[in-house]
Design a protein around this nucleic acid. Sequence first.
RNA 1: GCGCCUGUAGCUCAAUGGAUAGAGCAGCGGCCUCCGGAGCCGCGUGUGGAGGUUCGAUUCCUCUCAGGCGCGCCA
Length: 540
Amino acid sequence: MRIKNELRKGIDEVLGKLRLEIPDYSLEFAPEEIGADFATNVALIIGSRIEKSSIEIAEVISRALQEVEPETIERIEVAKPGFINIYVTRKRWHRELDTILREGKNYGKANIGRGMKVLIEFVSANPTGPLHVGHGRCASIGDALANILREVGYRVVKEYYVNDVGNQIDLLEKSINIRQKELRGEDESLPEGAYRGPYVKEIAEELEARYGKKKSFPCREYAVQKILSWIRKDLEDFGVKFDKWFFESTLYRKNKVKQIIDSLKNKGLIYEKDGAQWFKSSQFGDEKDRVVIRENKKPTYFTSDITYHYHKFRRGSKKVINIWGADHHGYVDRIKASIAALGIPPEDLKIILYQLVSLTRGGQRVPMSTREGEFVTLRQVMEEVGKDASRFFFLMRGADSRLDFDLELAKKQSPENPVYYVQYAHARICSIFREKRKKEYEKVSLTEEGREEEKESIEIVKRLSRYPEVVKNCAQRYEPHHLTGYLQDLAKCFHHYYDKYRVLSSDRSATKFRLKLVAAIRLVISNGLDLLGISAPRKM
RNA sequence: GCGCCUGUAGCUCAAUGGAUAGAGCAGCGGCCUCCGGAGCCGCGUGUGGAGGUUCGAUUCCUCUCAGGCGCGCCA
């Protein structure tokens, strides 16, 4: 068992013996300045409930705990307001290190998901143009989160929703047609909001070559397929693979949208006004009602989105996660209202909003509108900055913070980019093991007992020991960025240690221990980077 | 005007209601007989403002100021 779980069990046992109710208390790694290994506020919580001094309670609990866990606990101190600080024996930390190495690739896995099915939908950019940097941020977050959720025991499906019908596609078709006319020498200017990117011309040329002046040809289908194939390739090269591509058009083809409207009608939640059909979303927390069937009898985008979300749950997902750009936040309440109306608890739908990436190039703001056709693509960023670096960069900050991405700076910084710092630690450790094979240390096995005397090594074991909780924390809060921070910190500890102590030396006993330690560091870095979708190179 | 998000060190950002608020970058000064110098070490009077909740607030509540976004029978 890992130390923390063991201590929690011990504390619970002590509270039982003292006939105290077990409150919701914290048991954490103590802040570094304290010097202790773990700290709990259990006495503070109890003290505030019953009218007694927290310090006294802490002292009673400490004494009892010491007796329950003599092998693990070196000593216990009670501090200021009533914290209990626990010092763990070195022997116990050594066992922890062995546990980590034994678990190997599985270290970090948990079962808080208990096999629950989760559907995570992200990117879902309209197939009207290539992916841009913002989508890269979304893809990085979604993919990492999916990996993390899998790691802690959820069954995760990654899905991309393709809006292959509607006004944007109409507009794309129109834009292509105009470019075709240009090719034939006819002049017609692009309407307001048309797609102007060079790829539109490219598609127009291909269509022109294939179909010439034929009256009808599958323009939309061709264009969507074409653009989607670019998107797919971009994502693939970015290391993101979707389990399912769900086409909006299938909802119409299978009449699902009409079924949803009928179902809402049967619940008495649809009424007519100004020639349109309205859904009473305000009854479910939305600020006002919304149109689902326009005056022209066509459903709105919202209507197919209701249908889509309902069917995500119908397909067996207990939890649905969406990752949207923050400019869609006004949409959250109405979509939650709609699934609530259909009998699904709205809290089963988690919507993560990421702030848009503002892109600059040498301090100059780069406009980022797909429709204006002037934007920096994900591919450009990948090629300039590299896949690993850009993914790490996108994952360093919480989704809620705005991200300033200066391309010139990112390029310039690339050698000092934090991702290299973490990867370098991994490569360095691999190098130690290459060196080990060349020399007499060859026969040293990682299962042998070794001696440790420097305090930094125990600090590192403590950090390694935190790893599974970091992963859990990311999963429970849907925030992968805690993992990037953790890995940077771990890499820092390693580089420091490496600089101060030689791993391979004539001191055989110390060598045994240090090899174990760095092997465990390498393991955790590798597991962590893997979850983030970033490679852990053996050489750089 | 209403709603959501964000205000933390020169810059970019961390911190499940916990103890003396932490990193990176930039700047200055040091470290290569030795496993990879893409590295290490040293240098810091910062939570926009005012109240409140409590043993304890960057975190929760109210008000306020600043920025971003949204408020369509667009998606």
